[in-house]
Amino acid sequence: MLEALIEPLQYGFMQRSLIVAILVGLLCAVVGSYLMVQRLALLGDAISHSVLPGLAIAFMLGANIFVGAFIAGVLSTMAIAWIRTRSPIKEDAAMGIVFSAFFALGITLITLIQKSNKIDLNHFLFGNILGVTSDEVWNTAFIAAIVLLVVGLLYKELLFYTFDPLGAQAVGLPVNLLNFGLMLLIALTIVASMKAVGVILVLSLLITPGATAYLLVKRLHQVMMLGAAIGIISSISGMYLSYFFNLPSGPAIVLVASSLFVLALLFSPSYGIFTQRHSDSGALLLWREIKQLIR
């Protein structure tokens, strides 16, 4: 069993995938925890869909696609904020409008260029972790280093701001700057994760590991650390599933992460459906949950 897992690592592409899997699992869980606690999961989705046109345009211009994607991601958050503050449109509607428009533009552009260039739209949408180049490994490592350093340095300020933005503003913390910085970190993380999980499913790696950890531990840094462990386990497992069964890596990673979440939901000591009330049998409990849902 162990040999079967180690054996593929003799290939260079598998080593690269492994590094990217670890970095992406770690990075997404840490940054995604901020999205979860601020109830901004949808924003993560919006940014990730919005990077696509930047990526395509960068490709056309021969520029670094990571930079292009990053710029598009940041532009989308600014567009969302602008619509929300300058019109009576609410934030969720603004997100829906902006990200679908960006996404449509991205799909159109990539479809136009993918025949003449050797790129595959599916790889951006659903990830292709086994196909990462060494340049992409370096890009991902560079982004991971920056993001983790910033989170480490600004941890106490970001904790205060995300918990109580008004209180943080009142003592004079530069809340707009912190918010913008957080958006930058999220956009960077999404760009770094693009190749592993794809833009459609990166939301899962941002939210699910953190949410799973949230069911098990009680403080933000614990959520981040346990979430990172869960994220790394998910992405490595997904990578192997992709290798052995020839699956797209994104969906494989997401399915592992989601399964771990379901386990935590059922068996978490504090919130678990099966662990909360000890006297009843599992089947009865499940029935009661279903009845409560449809009542």
């Binding site: 606690v37 106490k156 300020e157 904790l159 205060f160 995300t162 918990f163 109580d164 209180g167 943080a168 003592v171 004079g172 913390l173 949230y214 531990v217 009680k218 403080r219 933000l220 614990q222 959520v223």
Partner: peptide, 15 residues
Amino acid sequence: YPATVWDVVMMGRVR
């Protein structure tokens, strides 16, 4: 929010 009483009180010391 995933924070303890201690975390919240320490926010008073951030600035």
